[in-house]
Simulated scan of single mutants.
Amino acid sequence: MNPNKTLWEKGDFTRIAETMRESGTLLVSKLGITKDMDVLDLGCGDGTTAIPEAKLGANVLGVDIARNLVEAGNIRSKKEGLANCIFKEGDATDLNELKDESFDLVVSIFGAMFAPKPFDVAKEMVRVTRKGGRIVMGNWIPGDPTLVAQILKISSAYTPPPPEGFISPMLWGVEEHVTERFVNAGIPKENILFERDTFTFNASYAPQEFLHNFKNYYGPTMNAFEAAEKNGNALQLEQELQTLFNSRNQSTAANSTVIPATFLRVTVTC
């Protein structure tokens, strides 16, 4: 079994994705999507950005390694009546079913960054993008003080060391590494642009319940709690994360969570 597939089929990421819809739609509105544009949404989850892309008239293919998320995406697309948006299983490191230069735009928001073999991921994204087309990635930034980078940092402290040869997905949030990967895939350095952007998690419940969803439905955090349970450190992990969630919450309402998270937006012109 592919360990990356196992990780993202664990739990139910749709519980987290529900808090990301508004920011997903806002981000898509900035991408210059036009009617009949061919868009690949890679590591699409259940369609947080793919569905807004389709609503703007693009022909959207969502690809994700997790079968449960692909199924959830197709259900959402059908409910929205979007015949121009379909979801399929696939691996960002090897998009063998997709032809060269098939898409005007390739989007991957907190998706392809978690795939292994980052140089292969960059090559595949470049390969399937048409000349003059674009790739847009959203990647979490290592050491960033905002929510997700800190969740992953805290969780990693409670899990066993990764296997030999493991490359941290957080390196997709470092400009030098991103540049190296796309230059290796044949992209001129001057065609790679970076900017800091913000994704806001909005939930109609308290931060404690938001943490509950990460603990029970988000693969990396689930693994951290399983490891912490074995070592008798689960309560410590939960307290550390609860402090994080409470301190980052910007909502003043009792049963509401609003937490911004900074990410690196990468735009590549092919």
Rank of each mutant, 00 (worst) to 15 (best):
M1G: 15
M1K: 15
M1Y: 15
N2K: 12
N4Y: 14
W8D: 02
W8T: 00
G11M: 06
D12A: 03
T14I: 06
T19E: 03
T19A: 08
E22F: 08
L27S: 13
I33Q: 04
T34S: 13
D46T: 08
I51Q: 03
L56M: 08
L56H: 05
G57A: 12
A58F: 13
N59V: 05
V60K: 03
R67E: 15
V70Q: 06
E71T: 07
E71I: 01
E71S: 02
G73I: 01
S77Y: 07
K78D: 10
K78Y: 11
L82Q: 04
N84A: 11
C85F: 03
F87G: 02
E89M: 05
G90I: 00
D91H: 02
A92G: 07
L95R: 00
L95W: 01
K99R: 14
D100A: 11
D104Q: 12
V107S: 12
I109E: 06
I109D: 08
A112R: 00
A112Q: 09
A112M: 10
A112G: 02
A112Y: 00
M113V: 01
P116T: 10
D120L: 06
D120G: 07
V121H: 11
V121L: 06
K123C: 11
V126W: 09
V128R: 03
R130Q: 15
G133Q: 13
W140A: 00
W140T: 02
I141H: 12
I141V: 14
P142V: 00
L147D: 01
Q150D: 06
L152M: 08
L152G: 02
K153L: 09
Y158R: 09
P162F: 13
P162M: 15
G165N: 15
L171M: 13
L171P: 02
L171F: 12
W172C: 00
G173S: 03
G173A: 05
E176G: 04
H177L: 01
V178P: 09
E180C: 06
F182K: 08
A185K: 01
A185C: 08
I187P: 04
K189A: 10
K189P: 01
E190H: 12
L193V: 04
E195Q: 09
R196P: 01
R196Q: 04
D197E: 14
F199V: 08
F201T: 09
S204N: 15
S204C: 13
Y205F: 15
A206W: 02
P207M: 03
L211R: 02
L211C: 06
N213C: 11
N216W: 03
Y217T: 15
P220F: 01
M222L: 11
N223V: 14
A224P: 10
E226H: 07
A228S: 07
N231P: 10
N233G: 10
A234F: 03
Q236T: 11
Q239F: 09
T243L: 11
L244H: 05
S247G: 13
N249H: 00
A254H: 10
S256C: 08
V258K: 03
I259S: 05
A261S: 15
T262A: 12
F263L: 06
L264Y: 01
L264S: 04
T267W: 06
C270T: 14
